[in-house]
Design a binder for these strands. Sequence first.
DNA 1: ATGAAAGCGCTAACAG
DNA 2: CTGTTAGCGCTTTCAT
Lengths: 342, 342
Amino acid sequence: MRVRLRDVADRAGVSVKTVSNVVNGYTHVSPEMRERVQAVLDETGYRPNLAARNLRAGRTGVIALALPELDNPYFAELTRSVVEAAEEHHLTVLVDQTDGLRDREVAAAAGFRHNLIDGLIMSPVSLGADDLDRRDPTALPLVLLGEKAGDWTADHVAIDNVAAARQATTHLLELGRVRVAALGHQPASSRESGVAHLRRQGWDDALRAAGIGPDPAWVAEVPSFGREHGAAAMAALLDGPAAVDAVFCFNDTLALGAIHTLAQRGLRVPEDVAVIGIDNIEDGRYSVPTLSTIAPAKDEIGRAAVRMLVERLEPGGEEPAPRDLRAGFELVARESTLGRRR
Amino acid sequence: MRVRLRDVADRAGVSVKTVSNVVNGYTHVSPEMRERVQAVLDETGYRPNLAARNLRAGRTGVIALALPELDNPYFAELTRSVVEAAEEHHLTVLVDQTDGLRDREVAAAAGFRHNLIDGLIMSPVSLGADDLDRRDPTALPLVLLGEKAGDWTADHVAIDNVAAARQATTHLLELGRVRVAALGHQPASSRESGVAHLRRQGWDDALRAAGIGPDPAWVAEVPSFGREHGAAAMAALLDGPAAVDAVFCFNDTLALGAIHTLAQRGLRVPEDVAVIGIDNIEDGRYSVPTLSTIAPAKDEIGRAAVRMLVERLEPGGEEPAPRDLRAGFELVARESTLGRRR
DNA sequence: ATGAAAGCGCTAACAG
DNA sequence: CTGTTAGCGCTTTCAT
């Protein structure tokens, strides 16, 4: 049987309150008392019942992180940054996989684990602004990561996706490429279409700024952002009418899939086709060729998300209005655009 | 203010018990009563306080999964399988990152979140059998994943690492390679040395069975299993005295790092050097060249781990003796050993 | 400085 | 079929 505060108290011949004081390191306890209680504590191996504490305290010290997929390297790396940031605030992170399904995202946002978690950080895919508006006002504090369309009533952290896409595309143009494909387009209704739309916008902007009219045949559509779809979309581009000399992929896994297909076809990267992605996942540092990409400041994102959440958790917090934070990013040019360095 | 069971009861003019019955779908409630209560429930948007339920029930429906690193693709993929298996048992999974640090692993195994979680699935790195023996017997149910040295007093699921390594090495030998390196050796004291030791053993066995005496110069050591160390170790091998014609890497990330280095040096895979790994991570299906590997039955592992844990959670459970389960695996031969198919 | 007692919100006995 | 009541184990007024 588990040892309770009560048991320790009986055994030490003191009241429950005194034991509680010792356990929680309260100041007003006489040294001798403290010592005696501590002895019993050690001897019995007492450990507080956290469920009881939670009930009493009304908070748990746990925050949830809801992501579409854990086995997408970008999210895995982001998770690490959130977990580390949370640790600094003495919070633990419960990771949740939504698969990008609207039901699950709505349930998570509504706080289906209220009283088990103090707050939620979520990277939404299918969730709409209206879902959030319908949310119970007493629901748990929420911070959104990544893209969102429209005006949302929650804190939000993301990079400027249009600017990031523009920079990636411009990099290709500066290398002299003139027929730059966009790989990763998604129908407006689809999952992830928020990000896809913005990244396409940036690509469009960059081409026009360079005096190039984007050819619709340069746009390759995907159902989602996995490697397999990058590979298939690249094949579709190559089989299509437009001979492109560069590909801006909407993320790194798509880019790695595209490179795979190019290699299968015997095409050289970047000599025949240059490739760039977004996310700066670890894989791209060791792929063959190494992958050029836009690197979002993942640590900044994780840290900011946790900080925003913590601010809403603090009892003294004045319920600040929803904030929108843009995280930084930078171009990381590697072999898939620059070629082998010597 | 949050609405409690009590509030609903007052408002509906019934007792708390009745409301509780309705909420929990108990049978003995008259239809009209149920309807009336349900109306108030909907109207007030009542949702039970889970912390209170947990305290009352003595269980939470949450299990923890403690892994060394979340951003290692193998663990990310394994996580997915555990999460899916847990869902079938109506359990949610709290993912924990230990970084392979002994302190954290000991803390996790001791149940530092007792009463917040019902059980733990852990992939230990630095944890020793003695740490477990010192464990509080009333501590939470534990299932270990992956390697372990010695006799442990806990359930365990893993593939037969020696056999897996033997098969990988044999595959290389069957292709006519005669100087097969082992990349991933670790000093006995190191993190992950358990797995590394067994995989080296399998390599050794396979070579001897083929009448080849393993050359110590064919063994490359790494501090841990990341891509960067695979790349560095491969460079060390190439700069060393032994000209190898194949490399058995102790996992896929090491293999991808090795392929990176080979490409940098202008060597062809597999013509000059064939490469094989273990884990069958998604990356290897799209790398250039695609990666041959040993595929552990991840779904089987996740499912088995959850099932074992659940059996110990069931109140009727008879506390079975610690079980040891071997999961299956199979060879997946791709371009890094077979070459480009045509 | 220490103790007694109330109560966090829920469910399970036990009555009625 | 429904209501009353006693805890789950802890922290926290309020006394002493």
